[in-house]
Design a binder for these strands. Structure first.
Lengths: 238, 238
DNA sequence: CGGGGGCTTGAAACTGATCAAAACGCGTGG
DNA sequence: CCACGCGTTTTGATCAGTTTCAAGCCCCCG
């Protein structure tokens, strides 16, 4: 059961009683590993399978105005291309940040399973709703926050989302990002990201060395970013 | 059948044959009218009804870093608060731009109807997926485009979405926006929006007087904005 | 030990913000 | 029908945040 993060998420919504575990736990899938920067999908690809992140991070990205814009970041338990169930053409790239492993499941299996279980379809729909809420938060961040709180917001969001799937330990998590990745996500230049990260460090808000980041004063960081995790729908089920 | 724009959208997905028109066409609803700037919901509201836009524009917005950020714009046929079916607490405000009329439908009716029809639930899920695609485009725009193409992108998107519901006539549409609304949506100051609109006019790309805007050279405007309507899923049904 | 990617630093240029004030337009009431 | 008043648009000048360009440094990996 390699996609257990996803199943845990869905199960929390469905409630143990009504959850038909067998269908998902035994779903036919393939496991793949991707190297840093490697592509899962390219823009224009016509897809027949969905991707479930098992470890590491994926990013959807698109070249706009000659820069590479990260549109969204996905972590274990997420399904970055769930929308291809409805429109199979990718409107953007999907690539791996650091090394990642994913499970891939055919559209036909998912569609069949979901059409048979309204409760399960509702749970998957909810995943899309949370996706949309995350995008909404990014729109707010990119539109209104200066570089320092904007970067802080991204870090807070990743911490909160990782916490949901049990990957946050002592306010610290695996963080295989390059500064260029942060720049691509936040719509900033890598030079400016560098200076901004330095300020977060100087203020004693974060510690980031190698592939691990730690939030030293999580509540202060969240206040700086005006971060409120409500939009992630944690623990607020149906 | 006051919400006919929505029904037309859903019907296109469902296919006329399998569409159980009676359920939606006869759904119990209330009609309301909102004045410019009036609020449909406030942040924190606990909702029991969904809103279907019938005429005019709504905007979801949130005060971030002491400015009012528009997170999304909704037009006839859209359901701005569909996500409240899953989490009834509003994380942002919803207000009217110009005068608008909406239909409001109870959560309980919608949930009952959707749980009985997988095809219908799938169609509503697809609406959320399009919402997410629109947010994704906004993230790209806010993160990567300078003010001129960013404004152009917003105008192109509204035109394309209005075209889908038959509200674009000769590349022209009702546009009850203030420059401040555009500023709030694009993450710019109203002063800068003013100068940017002037440049769009000087380049002969748009004509905007009173409450009507016209795209004089639509393809040029779309090229400037790097706008591609694919993400709206027009005419690409299951 | 060498190479290279990523990080860091500095200086100059630019985009867009801010502040302030004037002009415009339109609905209202006299 | 005109005058008033208020919200919106427009203009100018100055300021701040961020980008760009360029170079140097560090450290990890081969």
């Amino acid at each position: 059961m390699p996609h257990k993060k996803l199943i845990a998420r869905l199960q929390a919504v469905l409630g143990v009683s009504e959850y038909d575990g067998a269908a998902l736990a035994t779903m036919p899938h393939q496991i793949k590993t991707f190297a840093p920067g490697e592509y899962i999908w390219h823009q224009g690809d016509n897809t027949a399978r969905c991707t479930i992140v098992m470890s590491g991070f994926l990013a959807s990205e698109k070249v706009i105005a000659a820069r590479n814009q990260i549109l969204s970041i996905y972590l274990p338990g997420d399904i970055p291309d769930l929308h291809t169930l409805h429109l199979p053409v990718m409107e953007h790239d999907l690539s791996s940040i650091g090394t990642s492993t994913v499970a891939s499941v055919s559209h036909s299996f998912l569609t069949d399973t979901l059409m048979k279980s309204p409760a399960l379809m509702r749970a998957f729909w909810r995943e899309t709703i949370i996706d949309a809420a995350i995008y909404r938060a990014w729109v707010g961040s990119l539109g209104s926050l200066r570089s320092l709180p904007r970067l802080a917001h991204l870090i807070c969001e990743l911490a909160a989302r990782l916490e949901i799937v049990g990957l946050l330990k002592n306010d610290s998590f695996e963080f295989p990002f390059r500064q260029q990745n942060l720049a691509d996500a936040c719509g900033l230049s890598s030079v400016h990201v560098n200076r901004t990260v330095q300020e977060l460090r100087q203020r004693g808000l974060i510690e980031w060395e190698g592939r691990v980041i730690r939030l030293l004063k999580r509540s202060e960081l969240e206040a700086l970013a005006e971060f409120n995790p409500g939009y992630l729908h944690v623990g607020k089920y149906i």
